[in-house]
Nucleic acid binder design. Structure first.
Length: 423
RNA sequence: GGAGAGGUGCCUGAGUGGCCGAAAGGGCCGGUUUGCUAAACCGUUGUACGGACUUAAAUCUGUACCGAGGGUUCGAAUCCCUCCCUCUCCGCCA
């Protein structure tokens, strides 16, 4: 959620930035300011009337104590009259506040100045590429064939147990997944991130805090009975650890990492992109979350990108880093870098990580603040990134490292997997 | 799931209808005293949204907030209802 103050101060600047995100309804900015003006007026009106009610009520108390009943009764009528004029103001105020809030949450975060202009993924900017694209031996096949050949992931049985898009990992496949999770967490904690293991379901307030609600409820699995949402990423529970918390400035930055399964309905996703492990309803991911001083967030964003890049390098996968254009960024992000790994058998780039700076967009909703040196409350900045999402990493590891008789794993995994290959 | 006890400021904890934004103690911050430190003493110490004044800050001022939301009342931390959470016991259970 954007800060009202920012909107009021620079409405035209805000509108200009919204255009970069391909958000056309910039008149909402004017609507919001008008609603806020009205809100202020009503608030003042209410405060003044309520002040009279309060002071008169006190007088009644005094009169009652002295036994001056008649005068007290007269005052009571005065209060009753005041309250009847107050009632419509209260109702109006509630409506205006609700409208204001509804309009405010419609606005996406403003893109940072370095966000490329563009509407579609084709206009994302490749920042750099790394690793070496392998030359596969003759007869190489995509991962959906490899998982059958080595019997390590079973989609048919997953569909039988739950439904389409739910993978059943088996044998060396299950072990590979576990090894990767363990490795990623170790890699992150070695870099100073504190490991968390959060709840995998969240309440409405948490889903709202990170921006999943309102609007994206259709993308989350929902437990009607208890009104809980299955998390689409551990970003949600982990960032919400600090919801409504006044953080000590000297404790910044706060660096957290967590593994969790991620549940996504992926409503509306069709086509060949969804084949095999490319898109599933439940996948495993290790996430990074940072809560930082606002002056430091872009520095930290670069640092997180470098961190994820190092991790990918250790896996010896070919990758590229994209700076997302305005039209391809998420609602809440101010600047996002996507990591894609090259799937040699599919001859396709697959997204495996997305690292974003949300500036104060999330912290404004969640009221994550610190006190600055003047004793004033300031919003922190939040960032997060995947390190990494597993299914597509597994797909690439399988495809890129296949030989006619086995799949070789990068050396960094040998200890975790307790073997050097899948056969 | 059942029964009971609770949820008050940074912390402990008092407060059963007006004098309570809230006692007391602790902590924190500022000051005095003091070779230094400690101790003692004095003072200050919440958040949000408004308004006045101001270039601004400071200051003054109004309203709201004692788990959340409703209700009763001229007036609610206090009474009533619903919900959430914590603790104890029972039940069930990996």
């Amino acid at each position: 959620m954007l800060q009202l103050q920012v909107l009021r101060q620079n409405p035209e600047v805000v509108k200009g930035r919204l255009i970069v995100k391909h958000f056309a309804e910039t008149q909402i900015v004017d609507t919001i300011i008008a609603l806020d003006d009205e809100r202020k007026k009503l608030q003042l009106d209410f405060d003044n009337n309520q002040a009279k009610v309060n002071s008169t009520s006190k007088e009644i108390g005094g009169l009652m104590a002295k036994g001056q009943k008649e005068q007290a009764e007269a005052k009571k009528q005065e209060v009753a009259a005041l309250k009847s004029t107050l009632q419509p103001i209260i109702e109006k105020l509630a409506i205006v506040e609700k409208q204001l809030q509804e309009e405010l949450v419609k606005l996406p975060n403003l893109p940072s100045p370095i966000v490329p202009i563009g509407k579609t993924p084709a206009e994302n900017v490749v920042v750099r590429e790394g690793g070496i694209k392998p030359t596969l031996p003759a007869g190489s096949v995509p991962h959906w064939d490899l998982i059958k050949k080595y019997d390590i992931v079973d989609f048919e049985t997953g569909a039988k147990i739950t439904g389409s898009g739910f993978a059943l990992f088996k044998g060396q496949g299950a072990k590979l997944q576990r090894s990767l999770i363990q490795y990623f967490l170790d890699f992150n904690t070695a870099a100073g991130y504190t490991e968390y293991h959060p709840p995998f379901m969240v309440n409405e307030a948490s889903a709202y805090g990170t921006g999943q609600l309102p609007d994206k409820e259709g993308q989350m699995y929902f437990i009607q009975e208890d009104k809980f949402y299955m998390i689409p990423t551990s970003e949600v529970p982990v960032t919400n650890i600090y919801r409504d918390v006044m953080v000590k400035e000297e404790n910044l930055p706060i660096r957290m990492t967590a593994y969790s399964p991620c549940f996504r309905r992926e409503a509306g996703s069709f086509g060949k992109d969804v084949r095999g492990l490319n898109r599933v309803h439940q996948f495993e991911k290790v996430e990074l979350v940072q809560i930082v001083h606002p002056d430091k967030s872009y520095e930290v964003l670069d640092e997180m990108v470098t961190h994820v890049e190092k991790l990918l390098n250790t896996l010896e996968l070919p990758y590229r880093i994209l700076r997302l254009c305005g039209g391809d960024m998420s609602f809440a992000s101010a600047l996002t870098y996507d990591f894609e790994v090259y799937s040699a058998a599919q001859e396709k780039w697959l997204e495996v990580s997305s690292v974003s700076n949300f500036e104060s967009f999330q912290s404004n909703r969640m009221k994550i603040r610190y006190k600055d040196s003047n004793g004033k409350s300031q919003l922190v900045h939040t960032l997060n990134g995947s390190s990494l999402a597993l299914p597509r990493i597994i797909a690439c590891l399988l495809e890129n490292n296949q030989t006619p008789g086995e799949i070789n794993l990068p050396p960094v995994l040998h200890n975790y997997f307790r073997d050097s290959s899948i056969s």
